[in-house]
Each structure stands twice: as C-alpha cells, then as structure tokens.
C-alpha cells in the first residue's frame, strides 16, 4: 500500500453558480458551489478544483467568497483556476483558503509568470492547466489552445509540459479539448505522453462519462489523479462509488 490515486471533482463556477458546458457551450446550472463541495467532501473527494469561468472580472470577487466559505468547512486541498493572471490574484485566492492555483492562459502569454509564482509561493501550489487538442502528425501530436479551446497557440503540448515543469509547475492539469464534455473517455495517448514526460503529478481531465473511464485514465493514461465534473454533479455516480469501482479494478484509492 502507498500513495493513493486521487479523484478530483471539478466545479466550473460562473457568477457564483456551478455550471457545466458540453465542449464549452450549452451550459446547465448544477447548483451552489459551497453545498456541492461539502457533498463531495463527505463522499470522499481527495481534492476539489474550482474553475472560475465568470466572464467579467467585476464578478471575480464572488469566487473569493465561495473559496472562503468552502475552506472554513471542507478540510481537503482546494485548487482554484480561471482568471489567475498575476501574483496578486494568487495571493488573494491563497488568502481565501485555496491551497493551489491553476494557471492557464496567463502561462501561455507570459511563461515567466509561472516561474515568478513558483518562486514566490512554492511549486506545491502552482498547477499549470493546459488545454490540448490533437493536430496532424505522426507520431501523435497535440497543440495547446487558449480561451476555452478556441484559440490555437502553435505550441506543442509535450514541449509545453516540460517547459512548465522546468519553470516550477508542481502539477499539470491536462485537459483534452477533443474530449471535454463528450463523455467518451480521456484522451489516453495524450495523458500517457505527458505523464511519462514530466516528473510531477499529472491530473487527467476531459471526457469522463462512466467509471471505467476513470480506471483507464490511471491504468492506460498513467495519470496520478483523475478529474471529472458532470458525472458527479448530475448525480449519475457518487465519488464513493467511483472509488469503490477503482479499488475493484486494483487501483489504490483512499476509501
């Protein structure tokens, strides 16, 4: 027995409400983030990730209050992403009770920001979130996209992961844009390619539709943690069911 593979429910939060889109559109309301986070904690979530998808920066303060509220009731690691653009944004989230922040677009525009953040707050709290999409190439190739998967950057995903770890990322949150919201399973080739390249933990994200997908992410994708949203929000499965399923498949989990 040793380190458990983690299950991380992800809450996309828009103006203080949990929502979940399919391939970044068609947003459905899934409820109050504090209530949902508490439920996931009780069910045995290993961590919780919040992605603030609020479009207007005027409403970013809402997220701070959500984090504060959750952090005073839920004693597991909390990660906050979305709109993390500078050191002040990070400090605000950590002060609110977040343990880690996920940096995505800001890392692409200014990679030095990741270095600065890791030096200032420690690598343990800097997660680099990368949105990757398969592009033509042999062997398989993936490219980094920004703006919720709309804007290509020309950056190779594997090279990007290496660079971000060199710059001090303590963890990679890897989302397949091809799979996000589709419920057909993780992009396992992408997940394995990144996980085997870097020495830091990789969280697989995008595409979970059933519990076997979670097992595949760990076994075939070599992910250290698996992230899912809609299968938990809409009550299809509880986190406890997911963990029992993984344990049955021979994966070490915290039960």
């Amino acid at each position: 027995m040793g380190l458990a593979k983690r299950i991380i429910p992800c809450l996309d939060v828009d103006n203080g409400r949990v929502v979940k889109g399919v391939q970044f559109v068609d947003i459905r309301d899934a409820g109050d983030p504090v209530e949902i986070a508490r439920r996931y904690d009780i069910e045995g979530a290993d961590e919780i990730t919040f992605l603030d998808i609020t479009a207007s920066s005027d409403n970013r303060e809402t997220m701070v209050h959500v984090v504060e509220e959750v952090a005073s009731q839920v004693f597991i690691p909390l990660t906050v992403g979305g709109g993390i653009r500078n050191v002040a944004d990070i400090r605000r989230m950590l002060n609110a009770g977040a343990d880690k922040v996920a940096i995505n677009t800001a890392a692409v525009f200014n990679p030095e920001f990741v270095k600065e953040a890791a030096e200032k707050f420690g690598s343990q709290c800097i997660v680099v979130a990368m949105d990757a999409k398969q592009v033509n190439g042999n062997p398989l190739k993936w490219e980094i996209f920004t703006h919720g998967g709309r804007k290509p950057t020309g950056i190779d995903a594997i090279e990007w992961a290496k660079k971000m770890v060199n710059y001090g990322a303590g963890e990679i949150l890897l989302t397949s844009m091809d799979r996000d919201g589709t419920k057909v399973g993780f992009d396992l080739a992408l997940t394995r390619a990144i996980s085997e390249t870097v020495h830091v933990p990789v969280i697989a994200s995008g595409g979970v539709g059933n519990l076997d997908h979670l097992c595949e992410g760990v076994k075939q994708g070599a992910a250290d943690a698996v992230l899912a949203a809609s299968i938990f929000h809409f009550g299809e499965y509880t986190i406890e069911e997911a963990k029992r399923h993984m344990a049955k498949a021979g994966i070490e989990v915290r039960l």
Binding site: L3, A4, D46, V200, P201, V202, A225
Partner: peptide, 11 residues
C-alpha cells in the same frame, strides 16, 4: 517511476 513531489493521500 514515482512522481516528485510526493503529492496526495498516503498512509
């Protein structure tokens, strides 16, 4: 191969 940092729930 084990990832470093050691991150997550261990006994």
């Amino acid at each position: 191969r084990l990832k470093v940092p050691h991150m997550g729930w261990n006994q």
